[in-house]
């Protein structure tokens, strides 16, 4: 067995275990899954508008609630994490990812009890979304309010 053969064999073997630079593939998966979740949201919105006769805004509220319910349940069944491994940002960016982060944090700490585990850890990941959202909305809101006063 020559040294060169070993080297080649080795390179071939490790290739399977090395992380591939798959930016394009990851983006395609994110696009596909994220797009599908949004299309499903559009289907729900139009369903609520046509069947229940709601306005677009009300239908939007029902849609968000439905998506969150589905995402929480899928997280409970362990399905959403598998989708997340495939889709990356495609399942994290939609509002379903927000529900997933709350439910998975709550489930993860269940063994520490309902109060100290589930309730206190629920916003471990989602908290940053709310904090930054509120701070940003305050800053932009005050700027817009002041501009309006001047003009």
């Amino acid at each position: 067995m020559s040294e060169k053969f070993n080297q080649e064999q080795y390179n071939k073997t490790i290739k399977e275990y090395q992380p591939k630079p798959a930016l394009f593939g990851n983006c395609m998966k994110a696009f596909l899954v994220g797009g599908l979740i949004c299309t499903f949201g559009q289907v729900l919105t139009e369903l609520y508008m046509n069947v229940m006769g709601l306005s677009e805004k009300e239908a939007g509220n029902y849609t968000v609630t439905t998506l969150i319910l589905i995402a929480s349940l899928l997280t409970g069944f362990g399905v959403y994490d598998k989708i997340g491994q495939f889709a990356g940002a495609g399942s994290a960016v939609p509002v379903t990812g927000f529900a997933n982060s709350i439910t998975s944090a709550a489930l993860e700490h269940k063994s520490e009890g309902i109060v100290l585990g589930v309730a206190t850890n629920m916003f471990k990941l989602a908290g940053s979304v709310i904090v930054f959202g509120v701070v940003a909305a305050y800053v932009v809101g005050i700027i817009r309010y002041v501009i309006k006063l001047i003009i």
Binding site: C27, T39, G90, P94
Partner: peptide, 9 residues
């Protein structure tokens, strides 16, 4: 929706 997720990715 897909494009926003691609930016995230």
């Amino acid at each position: 929706g897909g494009a926003i997720c691609v930016i995230g990715q």
